[in-house]
């Protein structure tokens, strides 16, 4: 019996983010990138997934502005980002008004501190 505590993919992903590092996975079986992190590859079923650093660039696949009262923090963006590695994630595009986030916009990832936990958000590439 193995009594050693393991570090699952979900915990490892968050631990890296907490250190400011954004990592995704790449399947050593089929070569495809995987996100969100898993212990098996959803493409080929392989269980050998390596952690890799993505380029951090991608494109907005879809976007919505969630409307919120100004006293509660105001409107904010929720977007789906297609990373150049071919995986999609939910995130937020910052640095511009939420209604100015457009499908097709090139964006770049950064890791921010969100109440003590690392979180990936994006900014428009041209704004950097």
């Amino acid at each position: 019996m193995n009594t050693q505590e393991q570090v699952g993919a979900e915990a490892r992903y968050q631990a890296a983010l907490n250190e400011g590092r954004f990592l995704i996975q790449r399947c050593e079986g089929c070569g495809r990138h995987v996100f969100y992190p898993r212990v098996v590859c959803p493409h080929c079923g392989g269980d050998s997934l390596a952690w890799v650093e993505p380029k951090g660039t991608g494109v907005v696949y879809s976007t919505t502005t969630v409307r919120r009262k100004p006293e509660a923090g105001g409107d904010y963006d929720v977007s789906l980002i297609d990373l150049d590695e071919g995986v999609r994630m939910m995130s937020r595009v910052e640095g511009i008004a939420p209604t100015e986030v457009k499908i097709g916009m090139r964006v770049r990832a950064k890791v921010i501190d969100n109440k003590g936990a690392g979180l990936v958000v994006f900014t428009p590439e041209e704004a950097r």
Partner: peptide, 9 residues
């Protein structure tokens, strides 16, 4: 955990 921090409604 891959959606919640971004607070989709």
């Amino acid at each position: 955990p891959y959606e919640a921090p971004y607070q989709p409604f």
